[in-house]
Simulated scan of single mutants.
Amino acid sequence: MKPEILQICPMHPRVEAAFAAAYVVHRYWDAADKAGVLAARGPEIRAVATDGHYGVAPEIMAALPQLAMVASYGVGYDAIDTAACKARGIRVSNTPDVLNDAVAEIAVGLMHALVRRIPQADAFVREGGWLDGTFALTGELTGAHVGILGLGRIGKEIARRLQVSKMRVSYHGRHEQPFEPYAYYSDLTAMARDVDWLVAIAPGNAATRGIVSREVLTALGPQGAFVNVGRGSLVDEPALVELLVSGGLGGAALDVFADEPRVPAALLGLPNVVLSPHQGSATEKTRAAMGDLVVRNLAAFFAGDPLPTPVV
């Protein structure tokens, strides 16, 4: 008999195929009667496959008395109550490292798009503006000072790429990392005051909610730019919108938002903003690698082997 798993959300096609071959899969998001699925099959299900956005809602966990494994597709797991999982002896895995390059690429790409006004330049050519004159001069990254909020795996990859772009790199985090070649700021506002760019790539959780506050954004100032490739919850979004509209903040490049996929309407028409639909890891190569890790973690759990990438 194949083990039964509950799949909370859609995943990469190769993941879906691997699940179908190895398990009896209950597609929760696709079920017309979700409560009925939980009531009928909940007592038999020992593993859940989900992602960092959907997580596992408390009512789902409560309906799965034999739950012992949550395999999450993504590096972030803020939507999973890891404390509750630990208390119940439920293992949790994620998919770190395989998405470092893709997220670093989108971060640097967004910075180039904002400072060189690439979306506007593209529209300028398409709309025939070049026939009437040259495009306005822009800024550049070379020689600028960037502060990174969250020098984890992805933060380090972003830092290395920005050094190649001849930028000076500083960082803020819970602790100084003495063997990293970047200046450490224990105070985020102080760092924001000193840098030209602030890049947020910290995890979303209770400790980081709203960490990029109005005070931090104001310190970054009318010549500064904010980049968010972490979580929408990291920033005081109403303050961000207000400062971008008023000119209190120079610009922003955003891949994540507080209430995705809903983006504040005020941002849509601003020329000093570049918007991206949470596509940091959204490449064929990276999503396939993430999916493979989900499959491997579930296989290891059912085989009684150590998880390749455990969280809890």
Score class of each variant (00 low, 15 high):
265 A>P: 05
196 D>R: 10
129 G>S: 03
306 P>K: 04
102 A>G: 06
186 S>N: 12
93 S>H: 13
298 L>T: 05
230 G>Y: 08
305 D>C: 03
268 L>I: 09
26 H>L: 01
107 A>E: 03
236 D>L: 05
13 P>N: 01
14 R>F: 04
293 L>T: 11
95 T>R: 06
233 S>C: 12
3 P>H: 06
199 V>N: 05
221 G>Y: 03
121 A>D: 10
295 V>S: 09
231 R>Q: 06
160 R>W: 14
18 A>S: 09
207 A>T: 12
309 T>M: 00
158 I>G: 04
174 R>P: 03
125 V>K: 02
62 A>Y: 02
10 P>K: 13
146 V>L: 15
232 G>C: 09
215 E>T: 02
160 R>V: 14
15 V>T: 14
211 I>C: 14
244 L>E: 04
18 A>P: 03
57 A>K: 15
135 F>Y: 15
159 A>M: 14
164 V>R: 13
271 P>M: 14
14 R>W: 00
247 G>S: 07
193 R>M: 00
156 K>M: 15
111 M>A: 07
226 F>T: 01
156 K>S: 15
54 Y>C: 11
189 T>F: 03
250 G>W: 08
189 T>I: 11
306 P>A: 01
227 V>T: 05
190 A>R: 14
126 R>K: 15
148 I>H: 09
103 V>F: 02
33 D>C: 11
181 P>Q: 13
198 L>S: 01
199 V>Q: 04
70 V>L: 11
108 V>E: 05
190 A>M: 04
161 R>Y: 07
